[in-house]
Simulated scan of single mutants.
Amino acid sequence: MYAYIVATTLAAIFFFFKLRNKKFILQLLGVLILSALANLALKEAFNRARPTIDHLVVVETLSYPSGHAMSAMAFYGFLTYLVFQIKMSRLLRTFLTLVFISLIFLIGLSRIYLGVHFPSDVIGGFAAGLIWIAFCIILFNIIDLLRQKKMRKNQAEEEENLETG
């Protein structure tokens, strides 16, 4: 939880001060918060108990899908998408992509290592996170297209008013 707060804050600072882009901040927050809520709903729907082996950490919630794996995929996966929306060097883009993919994989692996998830829980979390990213990207692109269409319509109406006015 704290890692996401720090990572989101750093990303927000970069997006706001370097790129002057509030939209990316809102999108990232939306993806993270809504994926957490979706994970809670999925856990209740599947109602799967955790592994019965001794856990290296104490966890009381249901097992499937892994919330950590889903959040990692949603958060770092969406950051990977955003990296491809920003102008930057190919080397930096590749480096950031590899870092984000590594974090996703290692977070999922850690859940299995700690004994709090079955491998299928982590795979399910990854799949749910990936589906969530795809849904959000499509939704955000549709919203952008509708905004652009509305702006073009407003511009055309203004030009028409100037010509007739």
Score class of each variant (00 low, 15 high):
residue 116 V to Y: 11
residue 105 F to D: 08
residue 72 A to C: 13
residue 132 W to V: 01
residue 140 F to M: 03
residue 7 A to I: 01
residue 130 L to P: 00
residue 39 N to T: 01
residue 109 L to E: 12
residue 123 I to K: 07
residue 56 L to I: 01
residue 155 Q to G: 07
residue 38 A to H: 02
residue 42 L to M: 07
residue 45 A to V: 00
residue 71 S to Q: 08
residue 131 I to T: 09
residue 140 F to L: 04
residue 133 I to P: 00
residue 67 G to K: 02
residue 77 G to W: 04
residue 12 A to C: 09
residue 19 L to D: 13
residue 23 K to R: 12
residue 60 E to S: 12
residue 36 A to H: 09
residue 39 N to V: 02
residue 89 S to F: 00
residue 57 V to P: 08
residue 60 E to H: 11
residue 160 E to K: 04
residue 29 L to Y: 14
residue 112 I to W: 13
residue 79 L to P: 02
residue 135 F to A: 11
residue 154 N to P: 02
residue 9 T to K: 11
residue 136 C to P: 04
residue 51 P to C: 03
residue 62 L to G: 06
residue 152 R to A: 05
residue 58 V to R: 11
residue 34 L to R: 07
residue 21 N to Y: 08
residue 88 M to C: 09
residue 112 I to M: 15
residue 159 E to A: 04
residue 104 I to A: 11
residue 102 S to M: 03
residue 144 D to K: 03
residue 96 L to D: 14
residue 96 L to C: 04
residue 127 A to D: 06
residue 11 A to R: 05
residue 101 I to Y: 06
residue 103 L to Q: 14
residue 50 R to K: 10
residue 140 F to W: 15
residue 93 R to V: 01
residue 165 G to N: 01
residue 44 E to A: 03
residue 104 I to H: 14
residue 138 I to N: 13
residue 111 R to W: 10
residue 27 Q to F: 04
residue 146 L to N: 05
residue 122 V to Q: 10
residue 43 K to E: 10
residue 102 S to C: 03
residue 47 N to L: 03
residue 54 D to Q: 07
residue 137 I to R: 02
residue 148 Q to K: 05
residue 151 M to Y: 03
residue 3 A to C: 01
residue 125 G to Y: 06
residue 20 R to P: 12
residue 129 G to N: 06
residue 79 L to R: 05
residue 139 L to E: 09
residue 114 L to W: 14
residue 19 L to Y: 13
residue 154 N to H: 04
residue 44 E to C: 03
residue 77 G to D: 12
residue 11 A to Y: 09
residue 38 A to S: 06
residue 75 F to H: 11
residue 145 L to E: 12
residue 119 P to D: 10
residue 27 Q to L: 01
residue 12 A to E: 15
residue 110 S to Q: 15
residue 108 G to I: 02
residue 62 L to V: 05
residue 65 P to Y: 08
residue 150 K to P: 04
residue 27 Q to N: 12
residue 34 L to M: 07
residue 16 F to W: 14
residue 68 H to T: 15
residue 23 K to Y: 14
residue 76 Y to T: 05
residue 89 S to N: 13
residue 42 L to F: 09
residue 103 L to C: 06
residue 165 G to Q: 00
residue 24 F to V: 06
residue 112 I to C: 11
residue 95 F to T: 15
residue 33 I to L: 05
residue 105 F to C: 15
residue 122 V to M: 08
residue 97 T to D: 06
residue 65 P to S: 11
residue 14 F to N: 11
residue 29 L to K: 09
residue 11 A to F: 10
residue 142 I to D: 08
residue 141 N to V: 00
residue 29 L to R: 10
residue 2 Y to T: 13
residue 27 Q to T: 06
residue 116 V to E: 10
residue 82 L to N: 15
residue 24 F to K: 13
residue 164 T to D: 11
residue 79 L to M: 09
residue 77 G to I: 00
